Simulated assay, not measured.
Amino acid sequence: MDISVIGVSAEAEQIYRHFLRNRGDGIGSARQALDLDPDTIEAAVETLGRLALLDIDDRHRIVAVEPRIGIERLIEQRLAELNAEIRRVLAARDSISSFIEDQRQGESSATALGIERVEGLEQVRQRLDDLGFFSYKETLCLHPGGPLSRGAIETALPLDTRSLRRGLAVKAVYHPKALDDPDMAAYLREIVSLGGQIHITEDPMDRMLIFDRSVAVVPIHPKESARGALLVREPGLVSQLVTYFDGVWDAAKDLREFTEPSSDAPLLSDLERRVLAVMATADKDEIAAREIDVSVRTYRRYVADLMARLGAVNRFQAALRAKEENWI
């Protein structure tokens, strides 16, 4: 039996029962009879007095109120409170019609194909930053033009680094003209060293960004990207754009293969070399990933790729073969 629902704690219940059995006793008798802290007894007596279960005007002669009166009164008060709460909850139904009206306004203002128009370069950059921050799986990029400006690189690198360290896959395709600029070439090599994947193609392609294969961003005007962008969320359209990206990606060459196609030795990024170095020594993936400052997901992706390239059946064998082939 639990009467805490009407505001009487277990300690207060003990004290109420004590004074029912010992009518007219002082508070000192409760201190002697009950195994409770004096402060607890004092607080409980005050609560019982406030609930009108004890008459505590005279602390030397405390009188317990008859249960059929005191307990029943508390039950009635609690029921009244609950009924008032139920009425407030039911009244929330009245708001449904106003929410439906808001929904109708939103549906009437939204385009049929789930396309949002964002104008202005700064506004587009802010939306891209938001989309990148809340992505959890991957970002895909097609960049048909020349190199980014130094300011754009300085803005993009921290965002890409943050995504890669969170374990997101970053895949981007660039035109060879982007490599003409030393800063741009260094930026792309840095992305690869952090675990990103960069491909190069001379084939024509359209500029776009895709986040988690659910939101695509394309320029309002294909040759004037500064005018703004269209954010596409319509699943059918996004699926077509992902298919287009995959086709461009598969036909393009890996950055390392494109820049040094004649090298006999495999081209390894600094991160790949560090992964190989810890594969045979770290007991757990979490320890290895922490040692080289990447996420566990990124570390495992690199391990799987390196094992496949080395034809190894386990990580220790992969490390040995890497040494035999002078990869490390």
Rank of each mutant, 00 (worst) to 15 (best):
A110C: 12
R61Y: 07
R104F: 12
Q103S: 15
V124E: 00
V63W: 02
R93D: 02
S95A: 15
L74V: 05
S95D: 10
L82Y: 11
I115W: 00
Q105S: 09
R117D: 11
A91F: 08
I69K: 10
R87E: 03
I69C: 06
H60E: 14
I62Y: 02
E122T: 07
E101H: 14
E119P: 01
S98G: 12
G70D: 04
T111R: 03
V63E: 02
V89S: 09
A112S: 15
E66V: 07
S95Q: 08
D94M: 05
L90C: 03
R59F: 13
A112F: 14
E85I: 00
Q123Y: 04
R59T: 04
R87K: 03
E66G: 04
E119H: 06
E76V: 14
Q103L: 15
I71T: 01
E66M: 12
A91R: 06
D57K: 13
S95K: 05
F99A: 12
E107Y: 07
L121A: 15
V124C: 07
F99L: 09
D58Q: 11
S97D: 15
P67R: 02
R59Q: 08
I115M: 04
R88F: 14
R93T: 07
R88Q: 15
E76G: 13
S109F: 12
E101T: 01
L113M: 14
T111M: 02
N83Y: 03
I62T: 01
I115K: 03
R125P: 04
S108L: 10
Q103P: 13
E122S: 14
V65Q: 11
Q77D: 10
E107M: 11
E85M: 01
E119V: 01
R88K: 15
N83H: 08
R125F: 12
E116R: 10
Q77V: 03
I69H: 08
R68H: 15
A91D: 05
V124A: 03
V89F: 11
A80D: 10
F99C: 09
G70L: 00
V65D: 06
R59Y: 10
E119M: 02
E76F: 14
R93M: 00
T111W: 00
A84W: 02
E72L: 13
R61Q: 10
G70T: 00
R61G: 06
S97Y: 13
E107F: 08
R88V: 10
D57Q: 13
P67T: 01
Q103N: 13
E116D: 07
A80I: 04
D94F: 05
R93L: 00
Q77Y: 08
R59E: 09
D94L: 06
I62A: 04
E116C: 05
E81W: 07
D58W: 10
L74F: 08
E122I: 07
A112W: 14
I100S: 05
E66D: 11
A91K: 08
I86H: 03
V63G: 01
R117F: 05
E116W: 03
E107S: 08
Q103D: 15
D58C: 13
R88G: 13
A64C: 00
S108F: 06
Q105C: 11
R117M: 12
V63K: 01
Q123K: 10
L74D: 05
S95M: 09
E85H: 00
S98K: 07
R59M: 13
G120W: 05
G114W: 02
G106I: 11
E76S: 14
L121S: 14
A112V: 15
V63F: 05
R73A: 08
